[in-house]
Amino acid sequence: MRACLASAAILALLVPASADAQSGRIYRWSDLNGSTRYSDRTEGHATQGGIAEIPIRVEPAAVARLRFEHRDGRHLAWIDNTLGGPIEVMVHAVPGTTPASDPPLPARATVPSGQGVVVAVLAQATGLRVEAIPGSPSAQPRDVEYGYPLGTAALRITQAWGGRHSHADAGNRHAVDFAAPLGTTVLAARDGVVMQTEGSFDDAAPDDPDALERANFIRVLHHDGTMALYAHLQPGGVHVRVGQRVRRGQAIGLSGNTGRSTAPHLHFVVQANRGMRLESVPFRMFGPRGILRFSESIGAGD
């Protein structure tokens, strides 16, 4: 898992209409008149012709949305925050363009949870590129003991801090991969508010570089501004909603093997926004048999 997991803003959001659509399936079938139809459901179509499943690519949910408001001859560029916690955004001009803007582009802002802010005022509406990072850049991590994030007495770590396979970047340097059978209960390791969830992805794709951001996950915001990420959850394995308060030890989901993963496990990391970039934070944890002591090491998992 990389630090950028689900952090880049997507300005067009696909909202699945059913469980089939959430798992990335669209069906093509013929009606009684021989016309080709498309649906995210199979119910009622079997008697009307053969059904062919068409693979589609379900994209991660948007972190932020861009919209323009025309006012007094000017165009206000708003960024709306879709998460249950603050985000930091950077708005850029599309390469090759230099639109007149106040403030000049690129413009940067912090957007509170569920709110929108005017990031720039332009002479005319134009294409913009938006980057968005979860969390506030003013986060002040506290020294807190985290609980074990799995509902099992078994403990096997396949990759710890500094793991060469996928824990070498700043956002995951202090991540830990806990081996866990599919469907193992995932527990909140610390009190917080559910900030972001993703549960629409199906299978693991260990050899697909694009799969890094296609893992199911839960992001929980803590009081000090840090965020815990619980990743590679199974399809349908998100059991909390954005904005929900959770307590340490509360069941929040089910472990899985989605995204760029080679075996079932839970990827756990505490992150903080350090100014348009996520960095992992060292943490203390109490495990099934006492205090867990992590060190920079190389593991085989993820």
Rank of each mutant, 00 (worst) to 15 (best):
L187K: 13
A228P: 01
A205Q: 14
P60T: 03
Q115A: 15
G192H: 05
D31S: 13
G225L: 12
P282I: 12
P112A: 09
Y146Q: 10
T197D: 01
V111Q: 02
H70P: 02
P95S: 10
A205C: 07
V238S: 02
G96F: 07
R219V: 12
H239R: 15
E59G: 01
G243T: 11
R245C: 11
F201G: 01
D31A: 14
H174M: 05
V186S: 05
G243P: 11
D169Q: 13
D80T: 15
M227T: 11
I54Q: 13
L128F: 08
A272F: 05
S295V: 10
A215C: 14
V144K: 05
D40C: 07
A120C: 06
V281C: 07
D203V: 14
R142K: 14
N33P: 01
V111G: 00
V238H: 03
A168G: 10
P235T: 05
D210R: 12
G253A: 07
L278A: 11
L150G: 12
S35C: 05
F217G: 00
G301P: 07
S7D: 15
L254N: 00
A100Q: 12
A12D: 07
H174S: 04
S101W: 07
N257V: 06
H239V: 00
P99G: 12
A251Y: 10
I291L: 07
G50P: 04
R156W: 09
W78P: 00
L105V: 11
G256H: 06
R173W: 15
A160S: 15
V118H: 05
A153M: 06
Y27A: 02
A8F: 05
M1L: 13
Q115G: 04
I56Y: 02
L14C: 01
L32I: 08
A168Q: 14
I51L: 10
A62C: 09
G259Q: 08
A139I: 08
D208Y: 02
R129W: 11
G237S: 09
T82W: 00
E59P: 02
P206G: 12
A154C: 01
S297E: 10
A132K: 03
F68M: 04
V269A: 13
G249N: 09
A160Q: 15
F178G: 02
G96C: 11
V118W: 10
C4K: 04
Q115T: 15
N33A: 13
I26R: 09
S255Y: 09
R65D: 02
R41V: 14
P149I: 15
R28V: 08
L5C: 10
Q234N: 03
R108E: 00
R241A: 15
P149Y: 15
P99F: 14
S280D: 04
A107T: 03
A272N: 01
V194T: 05
L5K: 08
T226N: 04
L212V: 11
Q271H: 08
R71Q: 09
P206W: 09
V89F: 05
T110W: 04
T97Q: 13
I218P: 00
L105G: 07
